[in-house]
Write a protein that binds this DNA or RNA. Structure first.
Length: 270
DNA sequence: GACAACCTGACC
DNA sequence: GGTCAGGTTGTC
């Protein structure tokens, strides 16, 4: 479910209340959401202090004292919510941490989300993290165009590839391509460098605006306090096939690329 | 590349 | 009954 703006919002929400607090208790209620491969059990976090919370792509990173780290990926329907139980029923609660003054709950209806706890130095060997491409904000338009230009597949699929650029998902790929006026199935070798640079500008603009609106609550997403985001009100094409293009009035189309729905305006995007 | 798998729920 | 869903990974 959550993409970069949603994960960033959650990281900031949790930071604002949890930093510096000591863990009283941490436990998995459902071990199927533990990441595979040599990770530590939750009780190693007990009596450790939360030092920082970060984000890399769509991954949340928690850093504890004594060189312990926790990586959480929310996948499609994972939620991290402070204090109040719900709105999911308890059967979807799979993990929780009790801090000195707050509790953090992990819910996931579909159980795709994963939590891994390990020594900090193991981060650099993490099978997913270690392969992530750069953050979209960390590169300039020229670098972005250079990374994209010679890849001969649909530009939408390249935006979704976490090893090329980290953090973009289905909503923000479609919204960025609409903003840049590029069809999702266009292939970069046939797109001018100028337009690829423009795409970077659109990606940054869309992601920053979505962060400022605390993410998109299209379906399941809730922030760290259990509240909806607001960016779904500003979505122009994602999920709107059959509606009129907000720019030109043409009927928006839906095509499937890499098994993912892609929404665009056949007139504004080429 | 396309497709299935991992899961559950919403909607038609 | 079938289709679809913000993600990622593995297999023909």
């Amino acid at each position: 479910m959550p993409e970069l703006p949603e994960v960033e919002t959650i990281a900031r929400d949790l930071s604002s209340v949890l930093l510096g607090q000591k863990v009283r208790k941490a436990e998995f209620l459902n071990s199927s959401i533990m990441e595979n491969g040599g990770y530590l059990s939750a009780n190693v976090l007990e009596n450790k202090r939360l030092m920082a919370i970060g984000r890399r792509g769509k991954n949340l990173l928690f850093y504890f004292s004594e060189n312990l780290a926790m990586v959480i990926h929310l996948k499609m329907t994972g939620r991290l919510i402070l204090d109040k139980l719900g709105p999911d029923s308890d059967k979807h609660l799979h993990f929780h941490i009790q801090f000195e003054n707050h509790r953090l709950y992990f819910y996931d209806v579909r159980k795709f989300g994963r939590i891994g706890i390990f020594e900090k130095q193991a981060l650099k060997n993490h099978p997913r993290l270690s392969k992530l491409g750069p953050e979209p904000f960390a590169i300039d338009a020229s670098e972005f165009a250079r990374i994209i230009k010679n890849r001969n597949k649909a530009v939408k699929l390249i935006l979704l590839d976490q090893q090329v650029v980290a953090g973009i998902g289905n909503i923000y790929a479609d919204e960025s391509l609409f903003d840049a006026g590029i069809r999702p199935d266009a292939r970069p070798p046939r797109i001018s460098v100028k337009r690829l640079k423009r795409l970077h500008k659109s990606v940054v603009k869309v992601l920053k605006k979505a962060i400022s609106r605390r993410g998109s609550s299209v379906d399941d997403y809730l922030d760290g306090f259990g509240k909806s985001g607001q960016f779904q009100k500003l979505i122009k094409v994602y999920g709107r096939h059959g509606e009129d293009c907000p720019k030109c009035g043409t009927l928006l189309k839906r095509i499937v690329l890499g098994g993912r729905s892609s929404h665009y305006c056949p007139k504004c995007q080429h």
